[in-house]
């Protein structure tokens, strides 16, 4: 039975695991670099599912699914590059590259000018 496992059937399971693993990292870690890496790992999981679907069975691989993956990778790289630039920008403003939970300045009630 295990002999009949072709990569197209096997890898999507790995893709699903990568997606979940990335999601776990995205939720649990606070540092933005790690969160961006987590999103990228999630994306790789999705691409693995797509490419697995493309390669299933004995027919030649499906060029449409492969082309979609290529487009998806480019979109992911663009988003990553922008996210990194935004991280640096945020760090320059706050001195931290983490998203602090809790209220932000605009949500606080008091303001020096009010007194």
């Amino acid at each position: 039975m295990i002999e009949s496992l072709d990569p197209g059937t096997l890898y999507p399971f790995g893709g699903a695991a990568l997606f979940a693993l990335g999601l776990h990292g995205l939720i649990r870690r606070r540092h933005l670099i790690l969160r961006i890496l987590a999103v990228n790992i999630m994306g790789s999981g999705v691409f693995m599912v797509f490419l697995g679907i493309a390669a299933r069975g004995n027919a030649p691989p499906d060029p449409v699914a492969q082309a979609l993956t290529l487009t998806g990778i480019v979109v992911a790289v663009s988003a990553t590059a922008f996210a990194l630039a935004l991280t640096v920008h945020l760090a320059r403003l706050t001195g931290y590259a983490v998203l602090l939970p809790g209220p932000l300045q605009t949500h606080r009630d008091s303001h020096p000018d009010d007194r």
Partner: peptide, 28 residues
Amino acid sequence: GDTDAVTGAMRYLLINLLGSLSFLLGAA
């Protein structure tokens, strides 16, 4: 360019990326 705006943008970006990837996996 102020701290709140950039923090808000960063949160917004992460949630958007997560949402888009979830959408893409569904499409896959």
